[in-house]
Computed example of a mutant assay.
Amino acid sequence: MAHGAFETTYAAAADRYEHHPYRRAGRSGLDLPALSLGLWQKFGTDYAYETQRDIVLHAFDLGITHFDNADRYGPPHRAAQQFFGRVLAKDLAPYRDEILLSTKAGNPIGPSPYLKGGSRKTLLTSLEHSLRDLGTDHVDVFYHHRPDPTTPIEETVSALAGAVQQGKALYVGVSNYSPEQAHEAVVLLRDAGVPLLVHQPRYSIFDRTPERSGLLDLAAADGFGLVVYSPLAQGLLTDKYLTDIPDGARAKNSAFLKPDVIDDVYRERAAALNTLAKDRGQSLAQLALQWVLRRPEVTSALIGASSTWQLDHNAQALDFPPLSDDELKLIDEHGVHGTGLGQR
């Protein structure tokens, strides 16, 4: 391992595969855990290493085998990968074959023209850095993080396929692509003999874009899975903001969630959804996770966590009975697309 040898007291839970469900990614042969741990936020240098480590190891003990990263995640950029590299070397090295590591490139991480976009140089150079950060010779899934209209998609796809052909990635994915862009990537990748495994879009009760755009239908037709991010709408689909904005909450210090979207319209809708969740004996967060996972096109929902308690709480969403037709109608009534996104 690139990070050197460490002694560890960690031994994975013997029953880690007995409770967590796994779902097939499209028409591939790969199963993903229903919940995946994302390192998008709270895994930079501004959070305590031991807390982060406890969360990752606890996730693995729960049967969460997929850890989603990107060169951009921090702060600073690449810090989340470097953190995971330490945990992999110290604690998880014996289990590397049981872990799905994914990373992404193409979102800007600096002013250089080679630190953004979809060029072959950007993607493959970033992948080399990611492998060093993670201390591994390959990732399981390599994504293009966002579409780049200034680069021919043929070049981007060629770089993704090249990562697989060079043995530096086992599968490839795209993120934030429109259905039209995703289908073009599917066709080009198929021609290269490297199928598109997964697409990573934002999807939640408050963001129905994958339904409205036709992405869910495309996933079924083209045979790729969906790994959805922000299923809790940056915390809006929890009980955190039903009355006010608590100190330390994401809405007070995040570039992705602004306080002005937490208004009376949002609170009215979230309160109605929270009442439905309570009637089911669960939390609003658990209801929201169940809702995105109700679709067979969704392979896995990405969750973050700031504590092992939060991880346990979210994982318990998988234990509740399916949503009924009447409950789904209520969710449609109150879970209005655009809520919390500056749309009405």
Rank of each mutant, 00 (worst) to 15 (best):
I303R: 00
G281Q: 11
Q282G: 05
R294L: 10
A288P: 09
Q290E: 12
G304E: 06
H313A: 09
L289Y: 05
H313P: 07
T308R: 10
T299F: 05
N314V: 00
Q286C: 08
A305K: 00
H313F: 12
A272L: 12
E297Y: 00
R280T: 12
L284H: 06
A317E: 13
A317L: 08
I303A: 08
N274D: 15
N314S: 12
N314D: 15
N274A: 15
N274I: 02
A285C: 10
E297I: 10
S306A: 13
V298E: 04
L289P: 03
A277Y: 03
Q290H: 00
Q310E: 15
L293Q: 02
G304P: 06
D312L: 09
P296W: 00
A315I: 07
Q310W: 04
L284K: 04
N274F: 03
R295V: 09
T275F: 06
A272N: 14
S306P: 03
E297L: 11
V292C: 08
T308F: 10
L311R: 02
L302H: 03
H313T: 11
S283K: 11
K278P: 05
K278H: 14
L311I: 05
S283V: 09
A305V: 07
Q310F: 06
A301V: 04
D312Y: 00
Q310C: 09
V298L: 05
L273T: 07
T299P: 09
V292F: 03
L289K: 04
W309H: 14
A272I: 00
W291P: 02
G281M: 11
A285Q: 09
Q310M: 06
W309F: 14
L273W: 05
D279Q: 15
S307H: 11
L284P: 03
R294P: 05
Q310S: 09
S283F: 04
G304Q: 04
A272R: 14
A301I: 05
W291N: 02
Q316V: 03
A317I: 13
T275W: 06
A272V: 02
N314F: 12
A288E: 05
A317M: 11
A272C: 08
A277P: 11
Q316P: 02
R280F: 10
